[in-house]
Amino acid sequence: MEELNCETVFTIPIFGGIDIGESVVVTWIIMAVLVGLSILVTRNLKVENPGKGQVILETAVTSLHNMVSGMVGENGQRYVPYLMTVLVYIGFANIIGLFGFKPPTKDLTVTIALAVMSIVLIEFAGIYAKGAKGWVKSFAEPVAIMTPFNILEIVIKPLSLCMRLFGNVLGAFVIMELIKQVIPVVLPVPFSLYFDIFDGLIQAYVFVFLTSLFVKEAVE
């Protein structure tokens, strides 16, 4: 069962030793790959007569942008870059198991971090759009009796986001490991297609979709 553990890769010897987890290191790798790819593909962009590569890149970026901006609504356009980044990051994190790394999203710490950032974004968007007063008042909507539930939602929303992502990725990871141990050839391929790629991308989409929905709700 040592695959399930998130090991500490190294320790920085200050403040009594800061453990750097595997998930953080893999995140660094993902970051390096994403930024490197971005720099690579955005060289020599042309306004006129774009090449094939540029057309594909533009289509990808605009369709991602349109998808996210459609989910987050007109008033939440300023949060689109963050949501796009999270979508790309979680998508990459979920399918990085194909390359032999442990998905960072299998680490509860990472999904908690993502969920905390989401709820901070949601509440910040609410305060930004309605002002502090309007934001406080919005807890008593649509009727006053809903206030306790609305307050509870501050905890429930990120908790459900975090647990859904964590549970899905962990479950997929566990199943894949079991299949690999039973029959290590041929059989894992279709399962890997489903659990690593399809489920991974779906979970990334769901996470961003729900966050966008909450943001949209908060800014309206």
Partner: peptide
């Protein structure tokens, strides 16, 4: 610590992606 690092990582990634991917592509468009 790892939680903090993850948050920082994501913010850095956001800044980098903005600078190197979204801005150039959207600018060109």
């Amino acid at each position: 610590w790892n939680l903090l690092f993850t948050v920082v990582n994501l913010l850095v990634l956001l800044a980098l992606m903005k600078k190197f991917l979204y801005k150039p592509v959207l600018n060109i468009i």
